[in-house]
Design a protein around this nucleic acid. Structure first.
Lengths: 195, 195
DNA sequence: CAATTGACCGGATTGTAATTATGGTCATTT
DNA sequence: AAATGACCATAATTACAATCCGGTCAATTG
């Protein structure tokens, strides 16, 4: 029971901050606004978070957690590595397009390049990459992937590749989810050289 | 003999513009400055180019030509497709880092996001991608690559992937040219699935 | 007395009006 | 006929006052 009043306050603040960052982005969220939404005095926020960046960091940390657990839920140990990978990456793309905070931060980066917003998105991508890296390591152990691969680089590549196909390429050449997954899986698993 | 005075003027202007765009970027290059460097009156530029964008377009077109011929020279028909591809992409990365105009435009995009600079770089990348696509088509015909690949998408992917490894990943994990080429070739030719 | 608050501070940001710089034109010159 | 640069309208920059906001802390509360 380490909870009671202080934890309640902390929660109120985190929830208020989450809403505000999602609605207005990093820059347009003021500490005063957060305090109003949370129904606490501005000074109270500083009892729990040293700076606005800290508060934002906590929100990002929670979102990264959500992201990881979402990815976790997409994994079906009955399926092979590539099927799981495509499913996870697809889900992450959807999340990116649907989750208000991610949408807002991406927009803010495009429009005004807020460094903290970049930082936040980078942390989220890092979380995803870390998750994939872990899966790659498992797949190597299980013998599904060659043990010559560098898990970190491979995870990095997989994420880049999926985003490149699923977002950038799809802009000019619409592809269905299946087409993306097929192309992606095929390229990664066996390459393009003639057999 | 369609050359004489007019062509000479045109050349003077193009050379001056090339220098100015490379030294000051798109935005900070003024038509007056170009005319001064070229040693002609400002109005004369408009005899040959309708707008500043046109003039810039011509400079980019020439650079794209240089880029293509550089790529062409890297191709050795004795070597296999992947060796040539890695050589070409490596050379293009060097070019990107060394050619003043490309460096300046990239910096301008980072710093102030000049749309015309973005446009110029995009055209250059398009030229590169087109070149690779052509090589992919040849390789498919020669039976070096599977004929199930989509040449345009494959060229797009190859460029993305090489830049991702050679620029982004190398920032945090320095790799030699050979390591990049090896990883890249290996991944593209045969994938990462256990054999 | 520990927790909470909001008035307050100084530096950053923004609105805006005046000034300057620049792309493009065209009457004049060569 | 080709070339030029003064000129124009608008875009970009500057200067600066007004406003905003992150963070502090003395006063207040329960």
């Amino acid at each position: 029971m380490e909870s009671k009043k202080p934890v309640d306050r902390r929660m109120q603040i985190i929830e208020a901050a989450g809403k505000s960052f999602a609605m207005f982005g990093y820059k347009a969220t003021t500490m005063e606004l957060v305090s109003k939404i949370a129904g606490v005095g501005k000074g109270t926020i500083y009892t729990f978070f040293a700076t606005k960046e800290d508060l934002f960091g906590e929100i990002i940390r929670q979102l990264a957690g959500e992201l990881r657990s979402l990815a976790e839920r997409m994994i079906d140990r009955e399926r092979n590595f590539f099927a799981n990978l495509a499913a996870v990456l697809h889900e992450l793309l959807l999340f990116r397009e649907k989750h208000e905070l991610m949408v807002k931060l991406s927009q803010e980066i495009r429009d005004i390049g807020t460094p903290m917003a970049k930082d936040g998105i980078a942390k989220l991508e890092q979380a995803i990459q870390g998750f994939i890296q872990h899966e790659v390591e498992l797949a190597v152990k299980k013998g599904e992937l060659r043990d010559s691969v560098d898990p970190a680089l491979t995870a990095f590549i997989m994420l880049k590749l999926y985003v490149a196909i699923g977002v950038e390429w799809s802009k000019s050449h619409p592809l269905t989810r299946e087409e993306i997954a097929d192309y992606f899986t095929n390229l990664l698993s066996s390459g393009v050289a003639a057999r």
